[in-house]
Design a binder for these strands. Structure first.
Lengths: 145, 145
DNA sequence: TTTGACCCTGAAGTTTGCTTTAGGGTTTAT
DNA sequence: ATAAACCCTAAAGCAAACTTCAGGGTCAAA
């Protein structure tokens, strides 16, 4: 009957987050459920679930809920005022994402160095720290922006 | 004389964070200054600055201070007990970093779509939202882990 | 028809990561 | 030798992102 709407407990189980967090996200206007039953139960659609997944992934890579809300609001629409505004904001976010990717790649490199230097067993380990593998390459050196 | 030690204000200026945050990181054992002057002034070395940059970058990509402390503690050392432990932890962190990178690449793709769909001027914008560019590809769909 | 597994709201509490406040010492230029 | 620009500690305060609590409704199965 109801195409594929799920109650809050089911969505929570699917996305591995708590029911309380879902209600909190609603209060914070990050995720409004598609509709409510007569009794007031929240019903979420597949689109709601996609939106939630976007939120969770964005959060994992360091965006705040406020930033995520802005990202979710991003839409080109002739009815909405400035296409130019959207283009500027999007361009800035793309740059931000690129910096994050570069940082993660450096961290990946450093961790791989450490991983490979390790015998895996319990003897003869080369003494090595994550920071020395970083320092060697002068990675993560912040130039005044 | 003192090779290249700097006081807290100078390090703060270089790394664009506040003096108070630096003192807070010390209290949290994320960054102990190389030494102190007779008067108790903190003096930071170049290695301290590298360590700090690592902290700041890791923070930017979504690691908590507690996780960063663990990462900084990572070192292979024959004196320390389990090389195997380090290898396991490092392997897990590498996987985590790879997931973050993949997430960011999807976000980059979505933002680029939005950016390109935009005329940049003030008319004729194709109606488009960040979520639709994501949904189209069914990106960010969380499979129960 | 009642019991157990769900769902609701509103408000208070918690943790993390800082920032601010209060009250001082130290250094350096004038 | 004094004022401006720095530095110190300890403790309180704050915003973000949840979590817990208190007190109730709803619904399907036994």
């Amino acid at each position: 009957m109801n195409q594929d709407l799920v109650k809050i407990g089911e969505l929570a189980k699917r996305t591995q987050i708590s029911v309380e967090t879902l209600r909190y996200y609603e209060k914070e206007k990050l995720l409004q459920p598609e509709l409510r039953t007569g009794a007031g139960y929240r019903l979420y659609s597949a689109a709601d679930e996609h939106r939630l997944n976007f939120v969770l992934h964005a959060k994992k890579v360091g965006f705040s809920l406020a930033q995520i809300k802005e990202l979710l609001a991003l839409r080109l629409n002739k009815d909405q005022h400035s296409c130019e505004e959207v283009k500027n904001y999007t361009g800035a976010k793309i740059a931000e994402v690129e910096v994050k990717i570069a940082d993660l790649q450096k961290m990946h490199y450093a961790l791989s160095n450490l991983y490979n230097a390790c015998c895996g067993g319990s003897e003869k380990a080369t003494s090595c720290a994550i920071l020395s593998s970083l320092d060697d390459e002068t990675l993560f050196t912040r130039k005044a922006k």
